[in-house]
């Protein structure tokens, strides 16, 4: 990373840059989720590097875990594929580092479960992640009650800790959830696991508007969003739309690495086009 960029980074994060720019364009961000190392390291690297060109604004990269208890079948299988092919935390960070050699603007958020980070060592992980160019973390099994574990240390390394708000997060609890949140808020559209049923847009819009009353942070919506139409509908009132299981399914159904890249980027292009026009 050049000195200028580095200096730039200390003042405004890539995530802030991204959301500011998109606000000017009056459109939501397209956030893609893929599991690092799925289906194998080489294909995964290709998938990652070409995501921005296909139209992704923010990359969520899954750190595979053997026991992903908040994920549905699609992402469970993706994690197993990646682990069977030898993916590790160190390899995931190395993927980010290589990505950053070519791309210094697209934010990357690592998503996963606490145990692989805990075993890597929290300080060592945060140091290596910051160095590799990671912008944020989403860790499903660290509620605000455990902020001292990772959320607070991450802030000291300049890494955003993206908090999940859910349909069960009531008004009484919301301040606690938002207290140490940074980067953006990830609104989990339905009570359930990833790749489940689609939420109803009306209820979602209400929930997002209520969240806005409590936080100035951008609000992303994810869980159950699979199609360009859904992305457009939800992108009208949210700041970002997250698509995960539908992309991961493309990898599962692919006949080869090339086919996986073609399928994933094909769906990304449809989604990107749809979010670009959704507010007009």
């Amino acid at each position: 990373m050049s000195a200028i960029q580095e200096n730039d980074m200390t003042n405004t994060s890539r995530l802030e840059h991204c959301f500011t720019a998109l606000k000017q364009q009056n459109r939501p961000a397209l956030v893609s989720y893929l599991t690092a190392g799925d289906p194998d390291a080489k294909t995964s690297r290709r998938l990652l590097h070409e995501l921005p060109e296909a139209g992704v604004d923010i990359i969520e990269l899954g750190m595979p875990f053997s026991d992903p208890m908040a994920d549905g079948p699609a992402i469970q299988k993706a994690a197993l594929r990646a682990l069977e092919n030898g993916q590790t935390q160190a390899k995931t960070l190395e993927m980010v580092r290589q990505f950053r050699e070519q791309n210094s603007t697209t934010p990357i958020v690592l998503m996963g479960y606490y145990n692989p980070i805990y075993c890597y060592g929290v300080e060592r992980f945060l140091t290596d992640a910051a160095k590799a160019g990671v912008d944020g973390l989403i860790v499903v099994d660290l509620p605000p009650e455990h902020d001292e574990e990772l959320c607070q240390p991450a802030a000291q390394h300049g890494i955003d800790f993206i908090r999940l708000a859910t349909p069960t997060t009531d008004a009484k609890r919301l301040p606690k959830v938002l207290a140490n949140a940074s980067g953006f808020i990830y609104y989990v559209s339905v009570a359930g696991v990833t790749g489940g049923s689609a939420p109803t847009p009306e209820r979602l819009e209400n929930a997002v508007n209520q969240l806005r009353e409590h936080t100035p942070l951008p609000i992303a919506v994810g869980f159950g969003i699979r199609t360009a139409e859904q992305a457009a509908t939800i992108g009208r009132f949210s700041d970002a739309v997250v698509v995960g299981s539908a992309l991961v399914d493309c990898i599962e159904h692919a006949s080869s690495g090339d086919d996986a890249v073609t399928r994933v980027h094909g769906l990304v292009k449809e989604l990107a086009e749809s979010v670009r026009g959704c507010r007009y």
């Binding site: 208890m69 509620p143 455990h146 999940l164 859910t166 069960t168 997060t169 009531d170 989990v188 009570a191």
Partner: peptide, 12 residues
């Protein structure tokens, strides 16, 4: 020990 669960479960 602790409460290492998804936010959806925390209120419950």
């Amino acid at each position: 020990g602790g409460r290492f669960v998804a936010e959806t479960l925390m209120p419950l």
